[in-house]
Amino acid sequence: MNRQEAVTFKGTRHGVTLVLNAQAEFEAALAELRKKLAKAGDFFAGAAVTVTIDRPLSPTEASALVEVLCVEHGLQLAGIVNPVTRPSAVASPPAFAPAPPPAAKRAPAGEKLSGGEQTLLVRRTIRSGQRITFDGNVVVMGDLNPGGEVVASGDIIVLGALRGTAHAGARGRTDATVTALRLMPTQLRIAHLITRAPDGKAAAPKGPETARIKGEAVVVEEFAF
């Protein structure tokens, strides 16, 4: 085995795993991925894929992957796994198998910024029929439209109008939040709680808002730093 392929698909019990060769140049790997997906036609459409790579991905690279997998070919990104952020000692299942809610404690704000939890940056509007699933936080630079869905194990931030469905803390983190410049969701889910806007026409929010769990209910408040 001299030459390893830059991109390999593997079928596992948990779904499809996409192995990216850490040595390969990212652009080349992306081109090869595009080619393979185009050849596969509709075969992978709707499948949940876990991406594995032996090095950390930059936010730009992660966004490019989402672009190709989710937007161009309709796959669902179950998560990006690499040993840097996921020590192999943690025997966690890949992808989003309905995991028992781990009683995760929120790290102090300062520590959280320094990393440890991945954040996916989506530089586009998520339209009806598109779904982004990610193990970590998701930031959408655009809108989340009705019929679109974002599922994250951490927080969700939408720098635009959130009109679709958002599920933060999807693995059970009850301290997860959903923030949007205009929060008017079809449905909001945080951890195990599901809420929806009241029926009928609701007034547009005046400014950015955050939804979080307080007691046993999801509460929407004006966004504050």
Partner: peptide
């Protein structure tokens, strides 16, 4: 109409493919 706009939105997403 809400339904027509939502379907249009879906199509816009698919067209990028």
């Amino acid at each position: 109409e809400v339904s027509a706009v939502r379907d249009a939105d879906r199509i816009i997403g698919l067209l990028s493919g």
